[in-house]
Design a protein around this nucleic acid. Structure first.
Lengths: 97, 97
DNA sequence: ATTCCTATTTATAAATC
DNA sequence: TGATTTATAAATAGGAA
């Protein structure tokens, strides 16, 4: 989105990478917040920049609570499915809606 | 973005909420993946739907590693700053770039 | 619950201040 | 370096299948 189309691959130029990081981080945080509010979802987002800075967002229940809930959900599934999975664990009872 | 503008507040209609959740969750996951790749960031996203389903994404280093790194960064800051903060902890050494 | 179809709204790549 | 502008690329609301 912008003056030109870009390919999704690591940006080599450090300056451009930093600028893009700053812009997209803001956008991602905003989207996360919107999803949490619009859909009443419980969500946590943790981001470490390539330079080591930490940025995070957590919905109302709080980061710690969400991380604990995450661990519990994982444990219930006895075993790590895939450390780098994108969409992995789901509850055992499919909802009706 | 869409046929009409919307206000960011909880969607009361369960069906609409679910549909929006499904669509935006996908968009958020995509944005997270792009940020990780483009900017070489280490990132984790955990989302629980209002019905309890879990969806997650973690960049290449893996969810567990990122969560540990997060806890370490927090510990270094001795104490939780704000459980619901949006952007909270940062490292002590500002980078040059 | 997706998934396809678009009119619109947003996000944002580049350029500029 | 960071904030602002603006032309475009992308995301998505609403509707339909």
């Amino acid at each position: 989105m912008g003056r030109g189309k870009i390919v999704i691959e690591r940006i080599d130029n450090p300056t451009n990478r930093q600028v893009t990081f700053s812009k997209r981080r803001g956008g991602l945080m905003k989207k996360a917040r919107e999803l949490a509010i619009l859909c009443d979802a419980d969500l946590a987002l943790i981001v470490f920049s390539s330079t080591g800075r930490l940025y995070d967002f957590a919905s109302s229940s709080g980061m710690e609570a969400i991380l604990e809930r995450y661990q519990e959900a994982k444990e219930e599934h006895y075993g790590v499915l895939n450390p780098t999975s994108e969409q992995s664990v789901q509850n055992r009872e499919p909802e009706t809606n």
